[in-house]
Simulated assay, not measured.
Amino acid sequence: MRILVIEDDAALSDEIARALRAENFAVDVAANGEDGRHLGATERYDAAVLDLGLPKVDGLTVLQSWRAEGQALPVLILTARDAWAEKVAGFKAGADDYLIKPFRVQELILRLRALVRRSSGHASNKVTCGALEFDVQLGHFEMDGLPVRLTAFEWRVLSALMLRKDTVVDRRELLDRVYEYDADVDSNSLEVIVGRLRRKIGADMIRTIRGRGYLLTAD
């Protein structure tokens, strides 16, 4: 999973990014609304954390711009503005959730996971594919009831496939879910990650669809 954090407070954005990366998320950070708006419109993210009081372009304008362009990216507004009118304006602009500063980072992570789950079309926190189970809210994978130990990159690929099980996921999309904006990506890195996952959950569960991408299935 890949998250966009748009926050002009450097200390806060660093804290959020560290916490998200510790939970295996890929994270891109923008310090102003102009850069954030561009990243949200041109890169592929699972969700965005958006401050309202941003330099260059305010957060509400960023959100309105995305929605006007048909961008369905789930957005959690993170702000110190706690007036009811501010919340109404945020939701009318297309926000999916609203968290007031100060806040607990763990609550932010739980809310983001819930946004990603709902946007993927899953009603339950637990998504299953044969003997493989993914607890979206906790971020845990189990196979036959036993924990599956994954690296951050493996977790990102498997979570993307799991949330779209029985659907072919484009190779480019998977790469976008794994690596951050300025990462140096080897040409065969995704194949290496998929190979390691096959050894952990079973070779037959992840199929290569030539010329398209990968399919996670229990069939």
Rank of each mutant, 00 (worst) to 15 (best):
D135Y: 12
M162W: 01
T79V: 12
Q106V: 12
T151C: 03
R172Y: 07
E107V: 06
V105M: 10
K87Y: 09
V168E: 05
R172E: 14
K165G: 03
L138F: 06
L108M: 11
V169E: 03
G139C: 10
G130P: 12
E107Q: 11
D170S: 14
L132A: 04
L163R: 07
V127S: 01
R156Y: 01
L76R: 06
F134S: 03
V88Q: 15
R117S: 07
Q71A: 07
L150K: 08
R118V: 13
L174P: 03
G94H: 10
P147V: 09
A89M: 07
A131R: 14
V157K: 06
A152I: 04
F91R: 14
A160D: 00
Y98V: 09
L163N: 02
L99I: 15
L174D: 05
Q106T: 12
A93Q: 07
K101W: 08
Q106E: 14
L138Y: 03
G94M: 08
A114R: 15
E154C: 02
A85W: 13
A93M: 09
R118I: 11
F141L: 08
R111K: 13
A85S: 15
H140P: 00
L138R: 13
P147T: 06
D170P: 10
A93I: 06
R164H: 14
D135F: 12
D135G: 11
E173R: 12
L161G: 00
R164K: 12
F134E: 02
T167C: 03
M143Y: 11
L146Y: 05
S120G: 00
F103V: 12
K165C: 06
E154V: 02
Q106W: 05
S124Q: 13
E133W: 00
I109E: 05
L146K: 13
V136A: 13
K92V: 07
T79A: 13
V75N: 00
V127F: 04
R118D: 04
G139N: 09
F91D: 09
K92H: 13
Q106R: 15
D170R: 11
L174M: 05
L174S: 06
R164C: 02
D97K: 10
G121C: 03
M143S: 07
A89E: 13
K87F: 09
A72G: 07
P147W: 08
K126L: 12
T79R: 14
T128L: 11
K126V: 15
H122I: 00
R104A: 15
W155V: 02
S124Y: 02
I109Y: 02
K101G: 07
L108R: 04
